[in-house]
Amino acid sequence: MKAKQRLSDLKVMSSDQLEQEVLNLKKEQFNLRFQRATGQLENTARVRVVRRDIARVKSLAAQKRRESAK
Score class of each variant (00 low, 15 high):
59 S>F: 14
49 V>G: 01
23 L>T: 10
32 L>C: 05
21 E>T: 14
16 D>C: 07
5 Q>R: 07
14 S>H: 05
46 R>I: 01
22 V>A: 04
57 V>Q: 03
18 L>C: 01
59 S>W: 08
42 E>M: 07
32 L>M: 06
26 K>C: 04
61 A>D: 06
59 S>E: 09
35 Q>V: 05
45 A>K: 14
10 L>C: 01
36 R>W: 02
19 E>R: 08
13 M>I: 00
61 A>N: 04
63 Q>S: 12
49 V>F: 04
59 S>G: 13
49 V>W: 03
70 K>D: 08
37 A>N: 10
37 A>C: 04
58 K>V: 12
30 F>T: 10
50 V>Y: 01
49 V>Y: 05
5 Q>A: 08
22 V>L: 01
62 A>W: 07
47 V>N: 06
17 Q>M: 07
12 V>I: 11
67 E>D: 12
13 M>A: 05
33 R>D: 10
3 A>K: 09
38 T>K: 09
21 E>S: 13
70 K>G: 14
52 R>D: 15
40 Q>L: 10
21 E>A: 12
45 A>L: 14
54 I>M: 02
33 R>M: 14
30 F>Q: 09
30 F>I: 04
45 A>E: 13
28 E>S: 00
49 V>H: 05
2 K>S: 15
10 L>S: 00
59 S>A: 12
7 L>K: 08
11 K>F: 01
28 E>D: 05
51 R>G: 14
62 A>K: 10
42 E>G: 02
47 V>M: 08
67 E>N: 05
55 A>V: 15
36 R>F: 09
24 N>E: 09
63 Q>G: 04
8 S>I: 12
36 R>S: 15
48 R>L: 12
7 L>W: 01
57 V>I: 03
47 V>I: 14
37 A>D: 10
49 V>D: 13
21 E>R: 13
43 N>V: 09
53 D>W: 02
7 L>C: 01
23 L>P: 02
56 R>F: 11
11 K>M: 11
61 A>F: 08
56 R>D: 12
57 V>E: 01
7 L>I: 12
24 N>K: 06
54 I>Y: 01
5 Q>E: 14
70 K>C: 07
55 A>P: 14
25 L>K: 01
66 R>C: 03
46 R>A: 06
2 K>R: 10
21 E>Q: 10
53 D>M: 07
31 N>W: 11
43 N>D: 15
39 G>N: 03
48 R>S: 11
15 S>T: 13
24 N>L: 08
20 Q>S: 11
34 F>K: 12
15 S>F: 07
46 R>S: 05
54 I>Q: 04
11 K>T: 09
5 Q>F: 11
54 I>R: 02
53 D>S: 04
60 L>M: 04
13 M>T: 05
58 K>E: 15
50 V>N: 05
63 Q>V: 06
28 E>H: 03
25 L>S: 00
60 L>V: 00
55 A>H: 11
2 K>A: 11
61 A>E: 02
31 N>G: 04
69 A>R: 09
1 M>R: 05
3 A>I: 08
45 A>G: 15
66 R>S: 13
47 V>Y: 02
1 M>D: 09
